[in-house]
Structures are given as C-alpha cells and as structure tokens.
C-alpha cells in the first residue's frame, strides 16, 4: 500500500495515496499543540508521526512536508496536498484551525522578544525627551522673559535648576540689576508658581533622561559590551535602533554600518551619482569629531570595521575584545 503521512497544526494523518482514503488520524491535544507546532516548524519528527510509521511498517509511506533529516521520501506537490486536505476535511474545519493558529502565533510573538529591544526603547526615548525638553524650554524662557528677562543661560538644564533654586531677589543681586531698572514685571505669587511648575516638570524630565542613560549603560554592558567599548553607549544603542536587532547589526557589512543614519544622502548618491556620504550616525563619535576633515572618511571606515567585528562577537556571545579593538583604532588614528 502506498500512503502519505502529513501533519498540520491539528494532528497527524495517514492517507492512502491512490484513492485518498483516510487511514489514520491522531489529533493533537490542546496542551500538546504548541510543542508539536514548534517541532514541525523546525523540521523535527514528532512522536505521533513516529507512532504512525511504526504502526504501518509494510506501507510505502511518503512524507508530505519538509523535514530536516529525511529517512523516508518527501514531497511537497500541490496535488498531494490537495488530495490529503480533501481526505481529512472533517478534521480540518476552519474554526479550530483559526483558534490553533492564534494560539501558536501568540506564543511566537512572545518568544520573539529579545532583551536588546529594551535598549532601543530607552535610546529612542532619550531622543524624544531631548525634543520635548527643547520645546518646553522655549516656552519656559518666553514665560520667564516677562518676569526677569535679564537672566538667561545657554544651558537648558542649568537654567531650569537655577530659577527653581534662587528667588528673583537673589538673581537680581547676582546680576547687579536694581529692581526698578529691570524690564521684568512684578508677578503675583500664583503666577510665579504656575511658571515654576513647568520648570519643575522639566527638571524631572532631565532626571529621567539621566536615569535612562545609566540604565542604557548597564544594559549595553550585558548585551553588547564589545560594541559599547568601541562605539560608546549612545552611538552603539543608536546603531542598534537603526538596524532593529542585534542579529541584523551583526550580519550587516561594515560598509552599511558606516553610513547608517545617512540613508537620504546614500540613496541620493545611488540615484543621481552625487558624492556618497562618509558617515551616518557615526559622525557623533569622538574619533571622527576629532579627526581632520580630510581624514574623516578614512576614520569612519576603520571605525565601522571594528564595530562590525565587535557586533559579531557580541551576537555570538564571544569573549570581551572591545578594549583591544579600541586601542588598535586609537593607535592607528592618533
């Protein structure tokens, strides 16, 4: 007898090959289905299939599907799949099929989580906090301008903490401006408080940013110490955010890492033949910032090479060689 062995997410089936008659069916239980689905996806033999093979030792069995180790003939012909799915029609009603699919997919999504995704969230939020602090800062300065325009400071964080710390009197005294000379108006107590509430919120944002940075530092130390050692915490994290996963970062060629973040310039180059970008997000790196203009492209190339090596080591959980790589780089370019 010729027969076809087939497993779906519902169970394992044996179907007679000529007439398409169902010979055997073993349905998966609700508890087993996740296990079986994982095994089938990886191309492993599952116990139900082994049991059927044992039960029919004299049948000429062909397996319908994909298997890693094939000790029996395998097919994926469409006609065969149609024959088999017609034969097992009672067992493959769509409602349970959908329910099982959702179950399997829920687990697959849960399993797809990787710790480096948290690094991406943190580094992106740092960028967002900077944006928000800038917007709020502009408003605060405008607001404060009616109160005491003589006082201003370039550094946002310092400005906020100083106006929270010191009263108008103190600030006026430090600026050596007499109250009558100031262009600032007198505020009611309530008005001052309202304005300073904004400053307080901004201070909290700065504190959160700091906390994120420390978190990033620790997290990178755990997941990608080599990249961190060469690229630095923030640039390393940004590279990760641009590639999406550590695996992608590790498999990209160094030339791609070099221009990550300069996609606009890169595609303009590919389309119109304009000059290619020398570096993307790497331009923030101290080695490049310090280098002479005409040397920057060269430094970026070297830096990207080393980061690429480091990412591969991190992905395969190798030893820590970041320090050595960084020294090599610094020696070469200083």
């Amino acid at each position: 007898m010729e027969a076809l062995l087939y497993s779906s997410i519902l169970g394992t089936f044996l179907v007679e090959a000529k007439k398409g008659r169902l010979i055997e069916k073993i349905l998966f239980s609700q508890q087993n289905v996740l296990d079986r689905a994982t095994a089938l996806r990886q191309g492993a033999w599952i116990q139900e299939e082994v049991a059927v093979l044992k039960k029919y030792p004299n049948a000429k069995i062909t397996y319908l599907g994909f298997k890693e180790k094939e000790n029996i003939p395998v097919t994926h012909a469409l006609e065969t799949l149609e024959l088999v799915s017609n034969a097992i029609q009672e067992a493959i009603a769509f409602p349970p099929w959908q329910e099982r699919s959702i179950m399997i997919t829920r687990k697959a999504i849960r399993d797809a989580f990787k710790p480096e995704l948290l690094i991406i969230q943190a580094v992106e939020n740092i960028a967002e906090l900077d944006k928000v602090a800038n917007i709020l800062g502009k408003r605060l300065r405008e607001w404060f301008g009616y109160y005491l325009p003589e006082f201003s400071l370039g550094n946002q964080e310092k400005f906020v903490s100083l106006i929270l710390e010191k009263s108008k009197e103190v600030l006026l005294k430090e600026l050596k401006v007499r109250r009558e000379e100031s262009m600032g108006a007198e505020f009611q107590k309530e008005d001052v408080e309202e304005m300073l509430a904004l400053a307080k919120t901004m201070q909290e944002l700065f504190a959160l940013r700091k906390k994120h940075e420390e978190y990033l530092e620790r997290n990178m130390q755990k997941t990608m110490p080599n990249v961190q050692a060469i690229a630095g915490t923030v640039i390393g994290a940004k590279l990760l955010a641009l590639t999406g996963t550590l695996k992608r970062l590790a498999t990209f060629p160094a030339s791609t890492l070099q221009v990550l973040g300069a996609e606009k310039a890169l595609f303009r180059h590919l389309k119109t033949g304009s000059r290619p970008p020398k570096y993307g997000i790497l331009h923030e790196h101290p080695l490049i910032a310090k280098a002479k203009r005409e040397k920057r492209g060269k430094v970026a190339r070297g830096l990207a090479d080393k980061i690429s090596i480091a990412a591969k080591v991190d992905y395969f959980k190798g030893a820590f060689i970041g320090e050595k790589l960084r020294k090599e780089l610094e020696k070469k370019f200083q």
Binding site: I9, L40, L81
Partner: peptide, 9 residues
C-alpha cells in the same frame, strides 16, 4: 517550510 503545516491549498 516554516508554515507549510499551517496553510492549506
């Protein structure tokens, strides 16, 4: 092959 067992004709 990753989803062969999860799709019908």
């Amino acid at each position: 092959q990753q989803y062969y067992y999860q799709v019908l004709p």
